[in-house]
Each structure stands twice: as C-alpha cells, then as structure tokens.
Design a protein around this nucleic acid. Sequence first.
DNA 1: ACGATTTGACCTGC
DNA 2: GCAGGTCAAATCGT
Length: 307
Amino acid sequence: MAMASMPACAATEFVAKGRESAAVLKAMLGQLPAVVGAGATTPHGLRDLAEQILRCCDRALAALHSGTGTEEAASSSRKRKPEREDRLAAPPAATGSKRMRMSRGERGTRVEKKGTMEDGFIWRKYGQKDISGSNYPRLYFRCTYKDDRGCMARRQVQQSDTDPGVYLITYFDEHTCCRDDDAVEPPPPAPFVINFGSSTASSDDQPSGSPWPSSCDDDGPVETHTSSALCSSPEEELQAGTSCNVAEFIVEQSTPVPELMGMMHLTEWEWEWDRMDGCLDWEFGKGESSFDIDGFVRYDFDCIDLF
DNA sequence: ACGATTTGACCTGC
DNA sequence: GCAGGTCAAATCGT
C-alpha cells in the first residue's frame, strides 16, 4: 500500500494509463472496418498514430521502470536487523533481503483469473496465511525450478471474497527457469493461455493440483499463437471482427511488465495484444460493450518499480 | 525413499 | 502488537 518513490510511481501510472488509452483507441480504430462494413477505408494514419503513442508510452514505461527499479534495488539493500543466529546463520543475505522486500510491500503484477489458478507454470506451495479481512487464505507459491535453476519466480494466490470463482494472483520476480537454458529441458510451454467461451467449465474440471491449464491439455503446448491459429493475428481479428470475436477471449494469464514479456517469450505483437486486451477490459468494462468483462484479466500496474 | 504439502514458528515493517 | 511473508519440521502421498 505504501507508495514508495511516489513521483516515479505516479508518473508510471499515468503513462501506463495513457498507454492503455492509446491501446483502446488503436483497438477501436482496428474495429472500425468491421463496424462500418467490409472494404471501408481503414484509417491507417490514425492507427499508426495510435501505435506511435503506444510505442512512446512503452519506452517511457521502460525508462521509468528501469530507473525506479535500480532505485528500488539500491534501497532494498539497506540495513536490516541481524537474523537470529540459531536459525538463519548460514544464508543471511539471501533470505533476509527477500523477506525484507516482501514484508515492506514489494509490488508484483496482479492478475485475476477465473475458474482456475493455473497459468502454465509449475509452482510449489511453500506457505499459506490467513489474511485479515479476507474469507480465504492467501497461498504462497514459488517456482518448482527454484532449486534446479535458481528461478526466483513467486506468486501469491488468493480467492476473491466477492467472487470465489476468481483467483487474485500476484506474481513476483520472473521465471528464469524458462529463459536461458532451453537446451536443457523445455520449460512449461504455456505461460499465456487464452480460453474461449466455455473454458471456465473445463478449467473447473481440472484438478486443482494439475500444473497445466485445461486448454493446454487439449493441444499440448499453447502459446499466444493459439489465438492466431484461429485469427491470423489479434489485430487482424480486431479489424475483421469475424467469428473469432475478441469478446470471446478469456485471457487467463498475463504479466504486463516488459520483463515478464521477455520471460514469456512473447513477440512484440503478442505483447501489444496482451496489453491491449487488458485495456479493453479496463475501458469497456465500464458498461456498454459486449466484452466478456468477467473473464478478462484486470491489469494492475501498481507501480512498476518492482524487480 | 523421495518429493510435495501442511502448518506452526519466526522475522520484518508499520 | 499486529499483519503479512517465509522458513522448515512434520506429515502425507506416491
């Protein structure tokens, strides 16, 4: 809750919102031909402009991100009380600093998922805590490959009080287990899952302990390209407004920060689509649109000065 | 036997 | 002192 480095944080939020607005604009422009009718003139200039705004915002975010990130890293190395000798004598730096980070409210990337808490990664539960004011405990997971590959990715999962079918997932750190050593063993391949319409039910069928989302079980590894298998690309899809309606997408997992984009091997347009999707939720969620709001991920940038 | 999960204790910031 | 995050021994499942 504490807003560390307030100015940068606020700037980040503003830029993020501006970027999302641009993404919405871009999406709306993309839909225009479908609305007006096939063959209608595409406002290329406007779309280019929107894309330009998006790029500028991305760069601004990246700049802010890196700047505050180093700031954060520097401040996180500040003094801390000595660990208890009888328990934590061996690795004081690692455990101590991490605990400090967490305790003082390290911000992660929050994602809301419906029906399942699976996201394609394999997690090991390491803790559970009852949270005051919440009906459900918070579950703490770390990457299964923490020991094998030193992957420090963590996540916290909490069932929504208002909608028990919704899991509020907060991601911390990035998956290094799937970034460098592809040669060793393919990482869990479906960090980004797009379900269609009835996905929620199949997700419910999924045993909660299973590491894979149901949509992965169908076709094996699923990446964002899955959507492009049905639609040549999300943007084209938006333009075409065909049967593969954006409104039918339920994006069940995403990490909006650029670092995670890299970690999930998203291409640029996937990233654009990813982000845009969230924006659509954010904007269209207000009312009149036909988008499936409930299923959409709600991005929460908080302050992107983590990592 | 081994790995994953549970759960109480511990640590830290507020 | 409290709440939240993590650790690690105990327990469970295979």
